[in-house]
Design a protein around this nucleic acid. Sequence first.
DNA 1: AGCGAAGTTAGTCATACGTTCAAGACATCC
DNA 2: GGATGTCTTGAACGTATGACTAACTTCGCT
Lengths: 202, 202
Amino acid sequence: MARISVAQRRSDFIDAAVEVIAIHGIDGATTRRIAEQAQANVAMLHYCYDSKEDLFADVYEFVAGRYRDVVKDSDPHSNLVDTACQLLRGVMEFYVESTTFTAAALELISWARRQHGDRGIAVFDQALETVRAVLRSATSEHPVEPETIDQIAYVIGTLSDGFALNWLTYGDRSAATEQMEVAASVLESWLAVRLGSTPVAL
Amino acid sequence: MARISVAQRRSDFIDAAVEVIAIHGIDGATTRRIAEQAQANVAMLHYCYDSKEDLFADVYEFVAGRYRDVVKDSDPHSNLVDTACQLLRGVMEFYVESTTFTAAALELISWARRQHGDRGIAVFDQALETVRAVLRSATSEHPVEPETIDQIAYVIGTLSDGFALNWLTYGDRSAATEQMEVAASVLESWLAVRLGSTPVAL
DNA sequence: AGCGAAGTTAGTCATACGTTCAAGACATCC
DNA sequence: GGATGTCTTGAACGTATGACTAACTTCGCT
């Protein structure tokens, strides 16, 4: 049997936890199930992590980081409208690609709300703030009002979250593809109206 | 102590279950907690319902029915655009008013997805279909293509779901009020573009 | 008074959870 | 080749809590 380093094992456990959370929910994500998913033993989990809570802290960090990367790595355009549309598309495509990640993220958000903990809100916050940052950097030449950035970020978030919920519920890939187009056109129409009346330079 | 009919007790248990699900999630919605919330005891619950599952079946029906009513009761306008906007507004306002209901519905949807049961999808489906029906009735004079109706219903669903997720996470009422305006303007802009190019009669 | 509906007390039984331990297997260095 | 440190495991521990129930009491009505 291959011997695996603790570092690698930790990473495996994090992946496994995401998978299990997506399938069984937070409350169904037991140490046994996570260990099984990671093809390890329950004792191994406690060899790598002092407690389940320690593992979950890493899971949180992983999810937030992954999300941030997706937003950051969507190739930016010089103008605001294209950047926003590309951002929305990038996030939605990521959701379709990584269903388990998306489902796990939703579970974590729900769970955090119930516990009124700040950790779930942190994931949400971080994602929105990263979106804002990307939008801002796209308008560095012609700054727009912060309120406008906030609104655009909110609309991108809303459209992508709504999309995710639908995709997770139905799991219909071809429908999702069409819905991505609709969502993109919705954003585009609104941006035209929203930014059209106010010149970019203002 | 006042004696309460079984019918009333059942109704109380359903309300209590919604509350408990919103606070503790599906897995945290135990018979003990539900009974306590309903100011009754566990034995009473099993006096009214054969099993927890029986109660949950009623909870599902209640949630789906309530949702349907909200959509149906949004006062319809003669033209499609106004009807759609009013629909979206009605749903979002309902979400803000009934936080526990909204949270419980989200939990039920997530849970249903995990169990690959059809019940959660049924809630989702029913809601979307009701939206479509209302939209159709608003265009009875000048029928539009079914595909258009589908898209509008999807956009309304997406915007309201995304709104709900944000509202549940942050719980910021004044932010939610502003976001309702943004969502409404998003829908309006898109509808103008989407329907503008194709005359209503087509 | 008597009878059925409503309500309670105090459980049973079973499951499954997080966590630990003692012991074994492997690799690496002296 | 033995010592040492890093992985790996099966089997358990204690406990918490789940759904559900039997047996009994109280109420409201006729």
